[in-house]
């Protein structure tokens, strides 16, 4: 690693537990790499992994790649340079990630993937991903029920380069498209972003002032859309999100957004650390590499039990 990379890695470190000069735990270092913590979902992942790693006696280094594959590679170089024992990763793109994970593997560092899968097996040790399709069909079914199987609606799609955006949209449509009286009047990407969703929703409302429902590929876009609907005085519009964020939970409790789908992000991250620990100690995780975790529908009946991407 050259000086540039070192400096870069240092600037990307969000937090280092047991940093320089502090006595280290015996088990070694676990690197936790996720997209930006601007989205509380990824923050919950990092926190879940970090908490479990500390419980199991590891030091942790938490880094963010901002969905940039180059940056992710540099973070991997940093983890390799610091002789991390394992890497917990929510990756920056399915196939671009393969090289980074392979490089770590060649350096003797196993990777444990969460949330987003890669299209290859045998490179990472574990791939623990939310069953986005199953979750999207739950959201789709609830949306259909709330819409009483008819009416006009809008779909907000996530970042097109992210596999999960396509999977969720596919899950929504596999349910909704079976109801011919549900009419899609606009379908736009808002890049997983709250401000973008706000702007897109405002524009869509100008052309389609009488929509009955909105289905959103994630909760940050749902929050943006809800702000636009509120500003337009259209709080009777049925809105369903995806992720299970505390923001949307609070909106559901107030009777705003109607439902979301919880991805067990916190638990997934913890499970990845547990499997890393077992792998480091025994040479095997004892489970299949690719593991799907089911999502859970959140609506007014169970919203109160939701906290930080976990049901209490």
């Amino acid at each position: 690693m050259d000086f540039r990379q070192l400096a870069l890695a240092a600037t990307m470190v969000v937090s280092v537990v047991g940093g320089v000069g502090v006595a280290h735990a015996d088990s070694g270092l676990i690197a936790i790499i996720t997209p930006s913590h601007d989205n509380p979902f990824f923050k919950a992942e990092a926190e879940g992994a970090q908490a479990r790693a500390k419980e199991l006696g590891y030091d942790t280094i938490v880094m963010v790649h901002d969905d940039d594959a180059n940056k992710q590679m540099e973070l991997f170089d940093a983890a390799i340079g610091r002789h991390a024992k394992a890497i917990i990763l929510d990756n920056a793109g399915a196939d671009a990630t393969l090289t980074a994970v392979q490089k770590a593997k060649d350096a003797g560092i196993p990777s444990f993937l969460i949330d987003r899968e890669i299209n290859a097996t045998g490179v990472a040790v574990s791939q623990i991903v939310s069953n986005n399709y199953q979750g999207a069909t739950l959201g789709g079914q609830e949306f259909v029920r709330l819409m009483a199987e008819k009416g006009t609606y809008v779909e907000l799609v996530g970042k097109e380069s992210d596999t999960n955006a396509g999977i969720r949209s596919s899950g929504f449509h596999d349910i909704i498209d079976q109801y011919p009286d549900l009419k899609l009047v606009a379908r736009q990407s808002a890049d997983w972003s709250q401000p973008t969703a706000f702007q897109k929703m405002e524009t869509i409302l100008q052309a389609n002032p009488d929509i009955k429902g909105v289905i959103s590929g994630n909760d940050t876009m749902a929050m943006g859309a809800w702000a636009a609907l509120k500003a337009a005085g259209k709080t009777s519009v049925i809105l369903v999100g995806f992720d299970g964020s505390n923001d949307v939970r609070d909106s559901i409790k107030e009777g705003g957004i109607k439902a979301t789908v919880l991805q067990p992000a916190y638990r997934e991250a913890q499970l990845a650390v547990e499997q890393a620990d077992k792998y480091l100690k025994t040479g095997t995780t004892g489970v299949a590499e690719k593991q799907l975790m089911d999502c859970i529908l959140i609506n007014s009946q169970n919203a109160a039990k939701l906290d930080t991407f976990a049901l209490k």
């Binding site: 399915a94 899968e117 299209n119 097996t121 991903v129 069953n131 986005n132 399709y133 199953q134 596999t163 396509g166 999977i167 596919s170 899950g171 596999d174 299949a288 590499e289 690719k290 593991q291 799907l292």
Partner: peptide
């Protein structure tokens, strides 16, 4: 099996 297809989209 989930592991025998490329990704969860195909599994779906």
């Amino acid at each position: 099996k989930f592991g025998s297809v490329t990704n969860q989209l195909e599994f779906a």
